[in-house]
Write a protein that binds this DNA or RNA. Sequence first.
DNA 1: GAGTGGTCTAGACCACCCC
DNA 2: GGGTGGTCTAGACCACTCT
Lengths: 262, 262
Amino acid sequence: MAASVDTSNSSESPASALSPGPSFRPLYDQIKILLTQSLVAGEWKPGEAIPSEMELASRFRVSQGTVRKAIDALAAENILIRRQGKGTYVATHTEPNHQYRFLRITPNVGEMVYPTSIFLDVKRGKASAEIARGLDLKAGAPVTSIHRVLLFSAKPVVLDEVVVPSTKFPLLSLEKLEGSGDGKKGSLYSFFETAYGFRMIRAEERIRAVAADAFTAKTLRVAKGTPLLCVDRIAFTYGDKPVEWRRGLCLTENYSYYNELA
Amino acid sequence: MAASVDTSNSSESPASALSPGPSFRPLYDQIKILLTQSLVAGEWKPGEAIPSEMELASRFRVSQGTVRKAIDALAAENILIRRQGKGTYVATHTEPNHQYRFLRITPNVGEMVYPTSIFLDVKRGKASAEIARGLDLKAGAPVTSIHRVLLFSAKPVVLDEVVVPSTKFPLLSLEKLEGSGDGKKGSLYSFFETAYGFRMIRAEERIRAVAADAFTAKTLRVAKGTPLLCVDRIAFTYGDKPVEWRRGLCLTENYSYYNELA
DNA sequence: GAGTGGTCTAGACCACCCC
DNA sequence: GGGTGGTCTAGACCACTCT
């Protein structure tokens, strides 16, 4: 117990000796870190409720308002979800709302439609230099790659290659992917969460335009050389650790990549 | 004065009769709206400081904490900027930090580099159906379009077409664009702000892959048919009013569109 | 030192959910 | 009715900037 906080916020204790030092850490920031640690440690699992603000306040020996501000920050990052009158929950890709949180491919016209997956194969191999760099692995480290096609309104639109470190995702196979409840429908992240306990909280993407090669063209049923979006993604879990590398080749005839700039 | 607020927050007053009605508007939300109105009315101009939290609190007859929460929201939307010890300022595209806030084209490797503009021409014409829809105009309304090339490290990378309603941007010409202090360097939005008082606060983009046509290919010095990113953008001012339509054709050999998903 | 934003507290009360 | 998040207040104190 007695998990109280560094209330003596004076000049001492550089904490981790980085840049000259902020030499000042707001209390709510320390609380936020403690909450994140509990999340990483698995104290509260995705979908579960965390303790009430009052309880956390007394546990950390701060006021409710301070806990509140810490939770606000985590909620803004989509790591926690507040539900008035019920409690605060650990976000999960399993819920319908958050199933496709990272999906930016949308129809050019009409209502949103969500894709279904067709898995082509699952292979084990060695990380290329590019992938090793992105996933923070040694070059040549064992990785597992998944190939799939995304169907929108029953038509093939995206050819995906998904690469994860084999050590973190053991026993990954076609059967396991298709056997899982949310195989065809439901995002991969939902599967990663339930099957391996990895929750993705953030991702970075780089988009380029490329010409379809023979295989891709055939898979997406277009002419070789057709311009496609090439979307490279790195996804991160708690603690900003990269876990997944992904390359999507996307036909943008009837769909496009939507983005809001603020 | 006496600009006080609807403190009687009871069930009455549907305000604008939309969905069944939230029938509850937090005080800070009303304050936020009042602040936005002052912004729209030009009471405080881009770059200027707004009154202190204390002063606003007494003006609106609420506590400092409530004003604070309203300002927090506007700061999160990049509409206001807080500076500890100095005051709260109206955000502007003029400042170096915010000059390229909406620019997502970044080098594949190495440090960020910012583009310079070469203006090709400025023409007046009528809004196409697509543009009229995007800018919320009548089809055929008078519009002014700017063509420019963006040079990164002195090499042509983007061919831009920028369309704005002529009524809102009168007397727009090549000379005016190039004569302005920030003609070649500096974003267009900086120019729009100083020359016409329009500040862009938000934008929506749709990205597709296309093949370069003859003119574009020549301009970007690549082969006709080269795959390019086609980035369509609509930019909005205060009150979410669309003001600018833009289409950028982007060579993604050494540059790519970067995006963070959270 | 005066003024501004930033943190923290303690307590009252409201809106929502579920029993 | 009791619990949870959400709003609002009033006041104390801290950190930063400028003069």
